[in-house]
Design a binder for these strands. Structure first.
Lengths: 105, 105
DNA sequence: ATGTAGTACCTTACATAATAAGGTAGTGAA
DNA sequence: TTCACTACCTTATTATGTAAGGTACTACAT
């Protein structure tokens, strides 16, 4: 998978995964590692950014099967941002599609 | 348009635009500025990279309406790469789609 | 008791590539 | 002769993903 493709969409992916259900960091990293091969060293700094920007709230909950988990839940701002980013993303891939469709077919 | 979305797809876009017809740099920048708001300061370094990697050949042709134009034409390697990148891109946006479709709907 | 695997979090140094903002120079029209 | 447009290029900055490391808890097997 091309490395550069991943740049930038990640924020939208995380916000989308959090949209319906809050999740903890390791859970997010597992999903994103499987689907788009993103490493946890990428996710944790992003999650900190999302909190700093007011897109998520966090809390810690103990787990009986390992270390405590840090849960992330979307704020209203986070939800609005997800919707906006999603629209922008869909517009963007449509524009890219127009460009690349002229090519090899 | 979200800045970060653009990262990495640009190479595919340029290769795609060159797939059928050779084009000169300013022509490419005009198209990409209009469609995905990419500035020429981004394109020219990329074109140099593409040449260095053997994806394009270049030649200069005089123009009667302004400065000489530098044309870029895809090599066989460039064509193969366009096809490969396009597949990777389509796979990638499919994976992203799976992730974001779970969200806001 | 000790080691290993899995869970769960985090940090740092590095590479890449897009952006903004600049520059040079040719042509043609006001 | 100044302006607008064409056409190319460069530099410093910023953002963000990667690789590679680290800490620490639980459970299970040796």
């Amino acid at each position: 998978m091309n490395i550069q493709f991943k740049k930038g969409v990640l924020e939208l992916c995380v916000l989308s995964l959090l949209y319906e259900n809050e999740k903890y960091g390791y859970e997010l990293t597992s999903i994103l590692l499987e689907k788009i091969n993103i490493s946890d060293g990428t996710i944790y700094p992003l999650l900190r950014r999302l909190k700093q920007d007011g897109y998520v709230n966090t809390y810690i909950r103990e787990s009986s099967e390992g270390p405590a988990r840090k849960y992330y839940q979307l704020t209203e701002l986070g939800k609005k941002t997800q919707i906006k980013l999603k629209e922008q993303w869909l517009d963007f891939i449509q524009s890219v599609d127009d460009i690349i469709k002229g090519g090899s077919c």
